[in-house]
């Protein structure tokens, strides 16, 4: 997007933006480690329900099921994992934009617009799942104020969702550029950086899915 930095001398030969995004990801790791640790420390400490994996009956006799819906979240996890695959294909399409496309397969694989759209759509689908999950939790009686589980769960997954949202906006921005002037090999680094961020957000979700949803 900005002027090519490659025109400048660098000690490593890498573009500076590539190093900066890794430093940023290192910092983001500590952010999610803190959020996930708090969730785990508070696991089982809530005084009132609903609880993630156990049923609960309130003193007034109201019954609450275990609230986490693992089949639905498995589906949304699969969607997010597939978005990473689409992102890899989008980057490869941008990098190889100038290679000749002989077959229909070449043309499909070589379409950066298709794969960027696919990544953004899968990301949005994941967000849709999350919106569905949050609303159904609220209907079942769990809000961010209900108990420690609610506070730490919504904050952790909400932060992750905000990261996915930022990623989708980033992808849509790349798409806008692609439609305006076409993304080519000289833009590969910009797409590469967006991809690194996207995969990172995906990996964080794998950690969250395992630690929050799967482990009882």
């Amino acid at each position: 997007m900005s002027a090519p930095a490659a025109a400048h001398y660098t000690s490593t030969g890498l573009d500076s933006r590539k190093i900066a995004i890794w430093a940023f990801i290192g910092s983001e790791c500590m952010l999610f480690v803190s959020l996930i640790s708090t969730y785990l420390i508070y696991k089982g400490r809530s005084i009132v329900g609903p609880f993630p994996h156990e049923a609960w009956t309130s003193p007034s006799g109201q019954h609450f099921k275990p609230i986490l819906n693992i089949p639905v979240t498995s589906a949304s996890t699969f969607v997010l994992l597939m978005s990473s695959l689409a992102m890899v294909l989008a980057l490869s399409a941008v990098q190889n934009k100038e290679l000749p496309k002989r077959t229909t397969g070449d043309r499909i694989l070589g379409s950066s617009k298709l794969w960027l759209w696919m990544t953004a759509l899968l990301g949005t689908t994941f967000l849709g799942f999350q919106a569905f999950e949050f609303t159904s939790f609220v209907h079942e009686g769990l809000t961010i104020r209900t108990n420690l589980f609610g506070s730490s769960f919504f904050t952790l997954t909400g932060f992750h969702g905000a990261h996915v949202t930022a990623g989708v906006i980033w992808l849509l921005t790349l798409l806008a550029i692609d439609y305006r002037r076409g993304l080519g090999p000289k833009d590969a680094l910009n797409v590469d950086i967006a991809a690194l961020y996207w995969h990172f957000v995906d990996v964080v979700w794998i950690a969250i899915f395992t630690l929050v949803y799967l482990i009882k």
């Binding site: 708090t38 508070y42 809530s46 420690l148 506070s151």
Partner: peptide
């Protein structure tokens, strides 16, 4: 939220 709310078990 209840992160530091001792009465809620924090």
């Amino acid at each position: 939220t209840q992160f530091y709310e001792i009465a809620a078990g924090a």
